[in-house]
């Protein structure tokens, strides 16, 4: 398998999923119009506004927020020369400026990158990952993380989170209004409503938040697969990242911070200690990622 093909396939798939989000949003707007008439539409800018406000702040300040939440400590070149070298090597391969580098005191091996753009990027490693991995494996991990920066994944996940958030708010508003006398308003507004359209729009409003969540997680999984392919484009060495993922697979310790809020940013999901269902996971299964990288080893 060729990393260029994998990169474009994953880019197309995540674009399709984002388009799916847009379709879902229009379905919900249609459902609102059908169920509540023009009165309901006034809520849309309101919900989108709230979702934008709540996500935009954490997107804009993602580097500082995540550093605080994980307790990561910024380091300089003299603190860890080899790590600094590793990161700057991949930056040359990726054509990126060297990001802020941070270390999280945690014995579980893991790493993440975030930041609203390449000039505000931060890449962090746990002390555990620095201990268990050799230079080549760390190079693979670094390339995966910088691939997230190069692919603007903080932005992609912020867009997905905003849409999913707005949909959840909309559906929540609407269900509340329905239970507290929405029926009267409906009858007074429209007297020739199609009952099938009414039931369909009700179903859409109820199911939209779940659908949005599943889409959001699917986007996250595609971006992870894309980051693996892009990492190979940077290093031209699939075996480094493959061996790193195998190390993570063998390791059973899990990062202490099991916060759902930032689970998606680690290279290995910190929540997957138990058998979570595939659909509800932010990352593709490690075994699948390892198999894809193995398939690349033959060709690139």
């Amino acid at each position: 398998m060729d990393f260029r093909k994998l990169q474009s396939a994953n880019k197309i798939k995540s674009a399709q999923l984002l388009f799916g989000m847009a379709i879902l949003m229009s379905l919900v707007v249609w459902a609102l119009l059908t169920y509540f008439g023009n009165v309901g539409i006034g809520v849309v800018p309101f919900a989108v506004g709230i979702a934008l406000l709540s996500v935009w702040g954490s997107y804009w300040a993602s580097d500082t927020i995540v550093l605080t939440m994980t307790g990561a400590r910024l380091i300089t070149e003299s603190d860890n020369k080899q790590l600094y070298d590793l990161v700057s090597e991949i930056c040359i391969a990726a054509g990126l400026p060297v990001p802020k580098i941070a270390i999280v005191e945690d014995s579980a091996p893991n790493a993440f990158a975030t930041g609203r753009n390449q000039d505000h990027a931060v890449i962090a490693f746990t002390t555990g990952i620095l201990q268990v991995m050799d230079r080549e494996e760390l190079q693979g991990v670094t390339a995966h993380e910088l691939a997230h920066v190069a692919n603007r994944d903080t932005l992609v996940s912020a867009i997905a989170a905003t849409t999913a958030g707005a949909l959840a708010l909309l559906s929540d508003f609407m269900i509340r209004i329905m239970f507290f006398g929405g029926g009267n308003r409906r009858n007074s507004n429209d007297n020739n409503q199609n009952p099938i359209a009414l039931i369909a729009s009700l179903l859409i409003l109820i199911l939209a938040p779940l659908a949005a969540l599943l889409l959001r997680l699917a986007i996250s999984r595609k971006r992870e697969a894309l980051a693996d392919a892009t990492a190979v484009a940077f290093t031209r060495n699939p075996s480094g990242l493959r061996r790193a993922l195998e190390v993570l697979d063998r390791d059973s310790t899990v990062v202490h911070q099991r916060s759902n809020a930032i689970a998606h940013i680690w290279i290995e999901s910190p929540l997957d200690g138990s058998k979570t269902s595939r659909l509800f996971s932010t990352h593709p299964p490690l075994s699948e990622r390892i198999a894809t990288l193995k398939a690349m080893e033959g060709t690139s």
Binding site: Q82, D85, S88, E89, I90, A93, G95
Partner: peptide, 16 residues
């Protein structure tokens, strides 16, 4: 360490 990182950097610069 300086030599191996430099070799990598030269090599990645060519690739880029």
């Amino acid at each position: 360490e300086e030599l191996s990182t430099t070799e990598n950097k030269v090599s990645f610069a060519r690739q880029f």
